[in-house]
């Protein structure tokens, strides 16, 4: 067991990885991420890419819902804005992916700002209603604005390309997604070491005394909306490159619930929570799939409802029994391990 973790400088006390062991583990994790495509098969890679995209998006909704305390029921729609923007910019203006993705994120952020405007007048709970409205209004736009979105059939786009190299297989896209995911996670983590992140949490925990601390509530609520939507937009853009087609059904209300479930299950208000939640929730349907296929072809019709029931039960169950999510369970396990052989 380790008896303590002593620091001589505040800088090391506030570092992300505070012990030598944790820095080593992070290095090992990076190596494992880099080596994974050489070990896994294409199905594994497919799932890994999906997880990476979902981790980015879940981190986005975590900033808004987990850290700032504003429920979002329209996260998928902001992903859609990113995806359609990327498709349009790539198809019509011929821009490369490294321009399209940030622009897609920024456009999503702009739309997020607009949806956040009611926070001028209304408090947290009502904002959930604004996000629902955004989900359905944007869904309507995806379906009806045919010249840009291709309507119900959607639009397809050419693979991402860098220096003449086409990123079209899962193998190549995996590296693209991971290379975007890691800096975005670090960005979010850093944010909560500074005044900006603290202000978000202050808005969540007690918005009245936040004002007395000099925090402009509207300013930070809007910033949180924009940032959260930026993450969603980039994730949506990656989805566009990954599936090579963008359709309205991809960004349904159900997907918004999926991401809400991911942060509830993973743990709201911790970066680890968004990561774990996204991994867990991406794997759940795969496991369900395997189970239901084991029951034979007749059971396949049950897949989609079973998925929904499980998502719903996870939200309800975690909120009742472990409101701080899987991240909290992980923390407890780690602590028990550190203190071994003593009881916590």
């Amino acid at each position: 067991m380790s008896i303590g973790n002593f620091k001589e400088r505040y800088q090391s006390d506030e570092a992300i990885w505070r012990t030598p062991a944790s820095r080593v583990w992070f290095g090992v994790l990076l190596l494992a991420l880099a080596a994974f495509p050489f070990i896994g098969n294409s199905y594994h890679l497919f799932i890994a890419c999906l997880i990476g995209i979902n981790v980015i998006s879940a981190t986005g909704i975590n900033i808004l819902t987990g850290y700032t305390g504003l429920i979002s029921l329209g996260h998928a729609a902001f992903m859609g804005v990113g995806a359609y923007s990327v498709a349009y910019l790539s198809n019509h203006l011929g821009l490369p992916f490294y321009v399209c993705l940030p622009l897609g994120g920024l456009l999503a952020a702009a739309v997020g700002l607009v949806v956040g405007i009611p926070s001028l007048r209304i408090k947290g709970l009502y904002l959930a209603l604004a996000t629902i409205a955004a989900q359905f209004i944007l869904g309507f736009v995806f379906n009806e604005w045919e010249s840009v979105t291709g309507g119900g059939r959607g639009v397809s786009l050419a693979p991402a390309e860098i220096a003449g190299l086409k990123l079209s297989t899962e193998f190549e896209l995996y590296y693209l997604i991971v290379a975007i995911m890691i800096p975005m996670l670090l960005f979010a983590r850093n944010l909560f070491r500074t005044r900006i992140g603290r202000a978000f949490i202050a808005v969540r925990d007690r918005d009245i005394s936040a004002e007395v601390m000099g925090i402009n509530l509207l300013h930070y609520k809007l910033m949180s909306f924009a940032l959260s939507s930026f993450y969603a937009g980039v994730a949506g853009g990656l989805m566009a490159y990954f599936f090579k087609v963008v359709t309205p059904e991809q960004f349904s209300f159900g997907l918004s619930i999926f991401f809400l479930a991911a942060v509830v299950v993973g743990g709201m208000g911790t970066i680890l929570g968004g990561i774990v939640g996204a991994i867990f929730m991406t794997l759940v349907p795969e496991v369900l799939d395997a189970i239901i296929h084991a029951f034979g072809p007749g059971a396949i019709a049950l897949l989609s409802p079973a998925r929904e029931i499980v998502f719903g039960l996870l939200i309800v169950g975690f909120l009742i029994f472990e409101p701080r999510g899987l991240a909290e369970i992980w923390r407890r396990i780690k602590r028990a391990y550190e203190l071994w052989p003593f009881r916590n």
């Binding site: 960005f187 900006i196 601390m213």
Partner: peptide, 19 residues
Amino acid sequence: IKLGRHVHMKTGLLAAGFY
């Protein structure tokens, strides 16, 4: 306690995220 200093600090969103 750190929150108390919020209003006198300057770091903006991007600087914060990139630390």
